[in-house]
């Protein structure tokens, strides 16, 4: 159970005020109706192996539930619109953009974030490879890159084809071209792409 602390309360108030001002200030908006009552709902899911039960405004995305309510700030908010991949987490074994998914839609799901893959005392092989190959500069996109890369390697193993797979009926093999295409949903503003490819390729056991 997450306990609302002062920081969170003030943050929520600020957000609510911000939203109200936004509505009043928008000129062409259809209705100036008073803000609807938020709906609160309970949801339970597992995050990094730990059962969590939260009571949330239905508008809360999975990303905000993780960051603001569970204080797992590894997953990042870049665009909040599915365009950058910084918020990538793994849900029931599949990578998704947690910014485009409502927390209440994850009842019973198993969520894995970067914190669940490994930490400073025990790095996941991908985390270690990113350090070794300098797979980042500012590091903002990195948690999303690593969660995405982990799922990409599993997708290739499971035989999921991609846009660059030459023969749809043949076995899918790891290659740099496959990796680059499959990672295109993770944007890196610092342009660390070539080092990211080297890091992931090393873990995949292929020559970069």
């Amino acid at each position: 159970m997450a306990i609302l602390d002062d920081l969170q309360l003030s943050r929520r108030e600020v957000m609510a005020t911000g939203a109200a001002v936004g509505v009043a200030a928008a000129p062409g908006m259809a209705s100036a109706a008073p803000a609807e009552q938020p709906t609160l709902m309970k949801v339970s899911f597992t995050v990094n192996g730990q059962r969590q039960t939260l009571e949330l405004d239905t508008r809360t995305t999975l990303l905000d539930a993780l960051r603001e309510h569970l204080k797992l700030t590894g997953s990042k908010k870049g665009c909040d619109h599915g365009q950058c991949g910084a918020c990538t987490v793994i849900v029931d074994g599949r990578r998704i953009n947690s910014c485009l998914s409502l927390a209440v839609m994850h009842e019973g799901d198993e969520v894995t974030t970067i914190e669940g893959l490994g930490g400073p005392e025990k790095l996941h092989p991908l985390q270690a490879a990113f350090v070794k190959h300098d797979g980042y500069q500012c590091g903002y996109c990195t948690p999303g890159q690593i969660c995405s890369a982990k799922a990409v390697l599993e997708e290739i193993r499971a035989g999921v084809p991609s846009h660059v797979t030459a023969d749809l009926t043949a076995k899918v093999e790891f290659s740099q071209a496959e990796l680059r295409e499959r990672m295109s949903g993770n944007i890196c503003r610092c342009g660390a792409y070539s080092n990211i490819v080297e890091a992931v390729a090393e873990v995949a056991g292929a020559k970069a």
Binding site: G82, S148, P161, S162, L168, T169, G185
Partner: peptide, 23 residues
């Protein structure tokens, strides 16, 4: 789909990103 309706697999794989297609 890959065997008999390849155009459909190809069109899907050309759209969005791996994360988005999973949802």
């Amino acid at each position: 789909v890959r065997k008999d309706y390849g155009v459909l697999s190809r069109a899907l794989l050309a759209g969005a990103s791996g994360q988005l297609r999973n949802k």
